[in-house]
C-alpha cells in the first residue's frame, strides 16, 4: 500500500507544472508491471486531494501493456505474466520495451482569465 505516498508525489508535481492555475485533470501512464492498483490509486487520489487546492481534479490512469522484443528472432510479445520469454521462439534473451512506465504525462489546467 504505497498509493497514498504516490498520490502525494503526483499532486506536488501537478501543482509545480500548473503555474498557480487550477488543475482539472492529471493523466498518468502506468506500465503493466508496476505494482499499482488503478482503483486504489483513484481512491487514494480522492482522499489526497479532498479539501485542498486539487479538490475535484480528475485522475486518468492509462494502462501500458508489457511488451518484450526478442534478441534472437526479433519478435515482439505482449506479456500478461511476469515471465520474460519470447512468444515466437521461447528464447529468454528478450528486452522489456514497455510495461515499467510510471509517468505523469500531462495535466489540464484552467486557462488564465484575461
Amino acid at each position: 500500500m504505497h498509493e497514498l505516498s504516490i498520490c502525494s508525489a503526483i499532486a506536488q508535481t501537478a501543482m509545480d507544472h500548473a503555474g498557480g492555475r487550477a488543475v482539472r485533470r492529471v493523466r498518468l501512464r502506468v506500465g503493466h508491471f508496476r505494482q499499482v492498483v488503478p482503483d486504489t490509486l483513484t481512491y487514494c487520489w480522492d482522499l489526497q486531494t479532498r479539501g485542498g487546492p486539487l479538490d475535484g481534479c480528475a485522475l486518468d490512469v492509462e494502462h501500458v501493456p508489457a511488451v518484450v522484443v526478442c534478441r534472437t528472432c526479433g519478435a515482439s510479445t505482449g506479456l500478461t505474466h511476469p515471465i520474460l520469454v519470447c512468444g515466437a521462439c521461447q528464447s529468454r534473451e528478450v528486452d522489456l520495451v514497455s510495461g515499467e512506465e510510471f509517468l505523469i504525462e500531462s495535466i489540464d489546467v484552467a486557462e488564465e482569465v484575461s
Binding site: 504516490i6 509517468l103 505523469i104 500531462s106 489540464d108 484552467a110 486557462e111
Partner: peptide, 30 residues
C-alpha cells in the same frame, strides 16, 4: 475574438482548459 496560446487540445471553450505536457516520472522527486 480571442487569442489562443495553444499547447495541444482545446476540447471546449466553455471550460477553458489547457493541456500542459509534463512527462515526468511519478517518483521523480524521490
Amino acid at each position: 475574438p480571442h487569442d489562443h496560446r495553444d499547447v495541444g487540445d482545446h476540447s471546449g471553450y466553455a471550460t477553458g482548459v489547457e493541456r500542459v505536457e509534463v512527462l515526468e516520472a511519478i517518483l521523480g522527486e524521490n
